[in-house]
Amino acid sequence: MCRWLAYKGNPVQLEAVLFRAQHSLIDQSLHSRLGHTTTNGDGFGVGWYAPASDTPFRYRCVQPAWSDRNLREAARAIRSPLFVAHIRAATDTPAQETNCHPFRYGRWLFMHNGLIREYPKVRRDLMLAIDPALFASVEGSTDSEVMFFLALTFGLQVEPVQAIERMVAVIEATGRRHGIEHPLNMTVCATDGEQIVAVRYSSETESRSLFHSNSFRHLRELYPDDPRIKVAGDDAFLVLSEPLVDLPGAWQEIPESAALVARGSSVEHRAFTPALP
C-alpha cells in the first residue's frame, strides 16, 4: 500500500530520516519489509513546519521517491522540528500529484496507508458527506483525501481523535449499505504542527503495521555514542509504518484499534472506537 512517518523533536535535517537511516523511507520505497507491497513507487510527499510560517510547507511529486534528485537536495537543506513524509503505492486512483500525500488544509497535514474497499461504489456518498464549505479544497481523486476532509467536517481541528472516529464510522456505515463487509483498512496521521495524532484501525482488525519510538532519553542511556539519538533530543518522537533502524528497545508496535496523541513531551495512548456523529 504505502509507507509513512512523522517526526517531532529538535530540528533535524530531513535527510537524516529520509535517506541516511538503515531502513530509511527511501529504502522502504524499494524494499519495504512489512508493507502489503514491497515497492512503493507511485509518488511521494513531504510536509514540514517552520517557526516563521503559519502554514506548513509541502513538496509532492508523482515520481518514485528513489529517483527524485530534487528531493535529495531539499532533504539536505531543510531542517524542521516537525515533519511528515509519505511514499505511495496506488490502489483505485491514478498516480498524479494531487493524489500524493500529505494533504493540507490550513495548519493541518494528513497521511494514510490502507484503503477504502470498493471505493468507486461509495465515493459519491462519501463526498456528499463533506461539509460544503470545505468541498472546494478537495483537489484529487483518492480515498485518502476524502477521509481527511470527512475528518475536518467532523471536527478534526477541535477534537482530532473523536473526529477520526466519526469519519471511520461514516465510512463503515456507508460501505455496509453497499454490501461491503470490511469497508476500511487504515493507519493515519494528522498533525497541526503542535501535535501528532496517529491511529491504527481496520474493519477486519488486520491493520497495516504501525510503530512508535520509545523514550529517546532511555535510548540515549542505552546507546550513549549514537549521534542520531543525541541530535534528536530527549523529547524526540517518531511514529512510522516500519522501523528505520534495528536497535533493540527502540520501537513499540501500536496495537489494533488504538490512537496515539504526541504533544510536547507527553504521549497519550487511547482506545479507538468509531462512533457516528
Rank of each mutant, 00 (worst) to 15 (best):
M1P: 10
C2L: 10
C2A: 09
Y7A: 00
K8F: 03
P11C: 05
Q13G: 06
A16M: 10
V17Q: 11
A21F: 00
I26W: 02
I26H: 02
D27M: 09
H31D: 14
S32C: 11
R33E: 15
L34A: 10
L34S: 10
G35Y: 10
H36W: 11
T37A: 10
T37L: 11
T39Q: 15
N40A: 02
G41T: 06
F44H: 14
F44S: 07
G45D: 04
A50S: 15
P51T: 05
A52R: 12
A52E: 15
S53V: 01
S53M: 11
T55D: 09
T55H: 11
P56D: 10
R58C: 13
R60I: 13
V62F: 08
V62M: 11
V62R: 13
Q63A: 13
A65E: 06
D68R: 08
N70F: 14
L71K: 00
L71R: 05
R72N: 01
A74T: 10
S80H: 04
P81H: 13
L82F: 05
V84M: 14
H86L: 10
I87H: 07
A90Q: 04
D92E: 13
T93M: 02
E97R: 15
E97W: 02
N99E: 03
C100V: 01
H101C: 04
P102T: 03
Y105L: 03
G106A: 08
W108S: 02
I116L: 09
R117E: 14
E118D: 15
Y119W: 12
Y119P: 08
P120K: 08
R123E: 14
R124W: 03
L126S: 04
L126N: 04
L126Q: 09
M127T: 11
M127K: 12
L128F: 08
L128W: 08
L128N: 11
P132R: 05
G140A: 09
T142S: 15
F148K: 04
F149V: 10
L150K: 00
L150A: 05
L152A: 08
Q157I: 03
V158T: 14
V158Y: 06
V158F: 06
P160D: 01
P160K: 07
P160S: 08
V161W: 02
R166D: 02
M167N: 01
M167Q: 12
V168Y: 03
E172C: 11
E172H: 05
G175K: 06
G179R: 06
I180W: 05
E181C: 04
P183D: 08
E194F: 02
I196P: 03
V197C: 13
V199R: 07
R200H: 01
Y201E: 01
S202V: 03
S203L: 02
T205K: 11
T205Y: 00
R208Y: 13
L210A: 11
N214R: 15
N214W: 02
S215V: 07
S215C: 07
S215W: 00
L222H: 03
Y223E: 00
Y223G: 07
K230I: 02
A232M: 14
D234C: 07
D235S: 13
F237V: 04
L240E: 07
L244C: 07
L244Y: 00
V245G: 02
L247A: 10
G249S: 05
G249W: 06
A250C: 12
P255Y: 02
S257D: 14
L260R: 05
S265P: 00
E268D: 12
R270V: 03
R270I: 04
T273R: 15
T273P: 00
L276A: 13
L276C: 03
P277W: 04
